[in-house]
Amino acid sequence: MRQIPLGAKGTFTLRVLPEHLANRFKDAMLPQVLATPVMILIMENAALSAIRPFLDMGESAVGTAINVRHLAATPVGHDVRAEAEVVKVEGKRIEFKVSASDEMEEIGIGTHQRMVIDLRSFNERLAKKGKF
């Protein structure tokens, strides 16, 4: 892993489709708006985008913490754009400020943390757990 600078930024955009809605993703009684877990997915992808240029071959980064507020509803057909900014780096642990907006307003804000991993050793540890 190369040095990840504070202030490194990444984005990720997703068009909201029916499969991203709370009433399809979680429970049919919920309104037809973007599900919070999908908003979090968009934010996590923005964070990974921010640090991808600094990862060496065979490295990735997995999410370890998320603390967000879902502020506004987004219906199907809208684009949601998430932004992530590196605010702290401690060894392989990276902290981000994250936000998400649709075409009308900011829909989510919070913080996110990722840990840089070596894919080979990670997959070896995973294989030791075996299959159920």
Rank of each mutant, 00 (worst) to 15 (best):
A84M: 03
N45C: 14
D118Y: 08
I51W: 00
R52W: 04
E90K: 06
S99T: 05
E106Q: 15
V87C: 11
H70K: 04
P53T: 01
L34T: 09
T36A: 15
M43P: 03
A82G: 04
H20A: 02
L17V: 07
L30Q: 13
I42A: 09
P18N: 03
I117F: 10
H112C: 04
V76D: 01
A73H: 03
F96N: 02
T64C: 05
G58D: 07
A84H: 04
G130Q: 14
H20S: 04
A127K: 15
E103N: 08
D118C: 10
V98T: 00
P53V: 02
K97C: 08
P31H: 07
F132Q: 12
I42D: 02
L71F: 06
H78I: 02
E106W: 12
Q113G: 10
T111H: 05
F122D: 08
I109G: 03
F25L: 04
G91R: 03
T11W: 11
F132H: 14
H78M: 12
V86C: 05
S49M: 13
E83V: 07
K26N: 14
I4T: 01
E44T: 05
I42E: 06
K129C: 13
G110D: 06
Q3M: 03
G77H: 00
R24C: 04
V62Q: 10
I4C: 00
E44Y: 07
